[in-house]
Design a protein around this nucleic acid. Structure first.
Length: 469
RNA sequence: GGCGACAUCGCCAAGUGGUAAGGCAAGGGUCUGCAAAAUCCUCAUCCCCGGUUCAAAUCCGGGUGUCGCCUCCA
């Protein structure tokens, strides 16, 4: 399995520290608002990384932090007129809700910054004592010149940063790129006691402390979106190296951004979409398909049309499973033949190549196509359905087959539908097309779709308009 | 100013030296009273120019265009 490592800018063979297990840490949300569709891409993609690693046989420990103290929470607290702690509580609950709705599996642990204040202070104290950090008027900064290769992850040089610095000079800093470890509290702000006075930690320290506490000094994968490379992850590495001499993560993975119809998503452009609002209009699997249809490191462009296309595509998978009555066969024993094993091979080859989900999805379509192909023997079609579900699950699809494939009608309702079909068949025999069409149209209004097949009339429940804009 | 990414069919998208996956849409056929559904078939030489090579979408150089980071940001 190869993974693109931002640290080396190459695809590297993935070798975990402990064979058979993967420890990964994904930067989570700052809980000052509902998360948006761009966040969703990142969270969902790394959910797929986790699922696939598990599918590949690894035991995965998955940590995702929650940043629950930060300037943005303070601002939101003022805006909503409720305490910072309540802002955090509200949006943490929303995060879990929306992530679940997207089909994202819960992390093994979700450490919160405010639970780690004491340990962060400890780390900062050590860095100060060892000469990597300095205090100025209650603030504490990390000195980027104190370590040898600051900028290694992002490919930046300390000198260039100096030239490019656009922000007004913070006269307290010895170097413009020095970053805040501890920030003195202004009146009314949440604060904790520290050797430098009352204040709160800077953002870049929490992930170092929490990952070290839960995963050890070095772990396998550290992930986030591309914008975190600099300065966030660069600054994490600086602190890790200052305190242990080690980069705390071996593989650094970064997902690309999501744009809205070609433009960067921003509140000022009025093209800002919350994940929960999109979920009201589109099926979660359509959204998943959309994200996975493009390689994770490339930018992806969001539009309603494209989600709609994705929804159409996902329907294909389900129609294959419906055709073969997957629910009826899913518990039956089966042995895959060479043709199915070949598909599995193609699937893992694609995914092993830095999670090429687009190519992997093409394999799902092959499986779906064969599962539907009536010239295949039924047993063969069933096996293709099995491999389809197996591969799909590794990508996070088919999480709730019962809900998707069952009609959710009671027996009486089904008998009534059957009764109408009988009446309609008689009407057709008498060439009473008006009555036949009326029955068909009226049932359609109730969400029951009739299909005249060579074997008689079949019916299915049209899933609610989960797809159309 | 510094750093980086990308440009493949109407739309989305894979493919990094050996002669263009897949999906959506579209067109045609089958089926049908009609329709829907289903199913089968069809559908690109890869932004431009030059170079390297037996061979390039894939490598090199030069254009053009789009986007991102350097500041909080998933």
């Amino acid at each position: 399995m190869k993974i693109y490592n931002t640290l080396t800018r190459t695809k590297e063979e993935f070798t975990p520290i402990t064979p058979g297990t993967v420890k990964m840490y994904v930067c989570g949300p700052t809980v000052y608002n509902y998360f948006h569709i761009g966040n969703a891409r990142t969270f969902l993609f790394f959910d797929v990384v986790r699922r696939y690693l598990q599918y590949a046989g690894y035991t995965v420990t998955y940590i995702q932090n929650l940043t629950d103290i930060d300037d943005k929470l303070i601002n939101q607290s003022i805006a909503e007129g409720i305490p910072v702690a309540d802002i955090a509580k509200k949006y943490i609950a929303a995060f879990f809700q929306d992530a679940a709705a997207l089909g994202i599996q819960p992390a093994d642990q979700n450490p919160r910054a405010t639970e780690y204040i004491g340990k962060m202070i400890g780390l900062i104290k050590k860095m100060e004592a060892d000469g990597y950090a300095y205090e100025a008027n209650g603030d504490v900064y990390f000195s980027v010149e104190s370590i040898a290769d600051y900028g290694a992850l992002s490919g930046k040089k300390v000198e260039d940063l100096q030239v490019g610095a656009r922000v007004e000079a913070n006269t307290q800093k010895r170097h413009p790129a020095d970053f805040t470890l501890w920030k003195a509290a202004k009146p009314g702000e949440p604060k904790w006691k520290s050797p430098w006075g009352e204040g709160r930690p800077g953002w870049h320290t929490e992930c170092v402390v929490m990952s070290r506490d839960l995963l050890g000094e070095q772990f396998d994968i550290h992930a986030g979106a591309i914008d975190l490379i600099f300065p966030h992850h660069e600054n994490e590495i600086a602190q890790a190296k200052a305190t242990t001499g080690l980069n705390h993560a071996r593989y650094w993975m970064h997902g690309g951004f999501l744009n809205i119809e070609g433009e960067k998503m921003s509140k000022s452009l009025d093209n800002f979409f919350l994940a929960r609002d999109i979920l009201k209009q589109y099926d979660a699997e359509a959204i998943r398909f959309f994200f996975l249809s493009k390689h994770y490191r490339s930018p992806i462009d969001f539009s309603r049309e494209i989600i709609h296309e994705s929804a159409q595509a996902v329907k294909n998978f389900y129609s294959a499973l419906e055709d073969i009555d997957y629910l009826g066969i899913r518990d039956a024993a089966y042995t895959l033949d060479a043709v199915q094993l070949e598909l599995r091979e193609q699937f893992t080859t694609a995914m092993d190549d830095d999670f090429n989900t687009a190519r992997a999805i093409a394999v799902l379509f092959d499986a779906a196509k064969q599962a539907k192909n009536q010239s295949n023997p039924v047993e063969s079609r069933q096996k293709f359905a099995h491999i389809l579900v197996e591969m799909g699950r590794a990508l996070g699809f088919f999480g709730n087959l019962d809900e998707k494939l069952k009609t959710n009608l009671n027996e009486t309702a089904e008998q009534l539908i059957q009764l109408f079909i009988t009446y309609r068949t008689e009407a057709k025999k008498q060439k009473n097309w008006a009555m036949a069409d009326r029955i068909r149209d009226d049932l359609k209004k109730l969400g029951i779709q009739l299909k005249d097949t060579p074997n008689g009339t079949e019916w299915k429940v049209e899933k609610q308009a989960d797809f159309l804009p």
